[in-house]
């Protein structure tokens, strides 16, 4: 399966985010979906996230609150999508 790419917005100080987080709920955007029409689709996900870009198979790009893209990505393992409107 091709490597997936996502991004997320970090609204706090990046240094204050733990290097490793397990089973956290975050909002991510899908940057390379199969159906290109759904690019940038957002969803709540339960995921494992690491600042080490090689820890998990998928890429997580980081943006700050006003959209500033950070040079180095993190890595992510999406465990499940969380539906807030079920």
């Amino acid at each position: 399966m091709a490597q997936k790419e996502y991004d997320t917005y970090v609204l706090t100080d990046l240094d204050a985010v733990p290097d490793e987080r397990q089973n956290v709920e975050i909002i991510i955007r899908d940057l390379n979906p199969e159906d290109r029409r759904t690019k940038y689709r957002s969803f709540f996900a339960k995921a494992n996230v690491s600042k080490d870009k090689s820890k998990y198979s998928d890429v997580l790009w980081i943006r700050l609150g006003r959209g500033q893209l950070q040079d180095e990505p993190w890595s992510i393992e999406v465990l499940e999508e969380v539906n807030k409107f079920a």
Binding site: Y9, R29, D35, R37, T38, Y40, R41, S42, R63, R66, G67, Q68, L69
Partner: peptide, 16 residues
């Protein structure tokens, strides 16, 4: 909503 060609208006926007 993805049936409509909502634009990514600017680089850096939070969505379409």
């Amino acid at each position: 909503l993805f049936h409509l060609p909502g634009p990514m208006v600017h680089g850096g926007d939070g969505g379409r």
